[in-house]
Design a protein around this nucleic acid. Sequence first.
DNA 1: AATTTGACCATAA
DNA 2: GTTATGGCCAAAT
Length: 117
Amino acid sequence: MTQSGSTSAPSTSLYQRFYEVVRRIPPGRVATYGQVARVAGYPGYARQVGYALFRLQGQNTDIPWHRVINAQGCISYSPFRLGYDDLQKALLQAEGIHFDAEGRVDLQQFGWDPWEA
DNA sequence: AATTTGACCATAA
DNA sequence: GTTATGGCCAAAT
């Protein structure tokens, strides 16, 4: 079969793939960067997930980026986010997620099961 | 086209 | 418990 030239490249960008997964995270649940990458079909791309979400800053998105945290169960603070990190915690608390005294979330309890529902 | 960037993760000492 | 380090890879500049 002549493949008309280009290989079967995804019409959507890789990052957009991550956005779709993040969008599927139900309220009151959190997912880790590594998990999002894995569910998207790209294990090991955790870093790219973080970078993808970083590009969302200031853009109109229906993506619950605040439901994505790191594998340690805590929010990834960074000088680049200038307050957005603090906003994230507020949004999660508003969804009923409780934080530990160390500012961590109990992934055993609030962790999202992509294969659930 | 090469360099820089990054909100990560796992392991080791 | 902490700190350091390597690996991971695409998008933006």
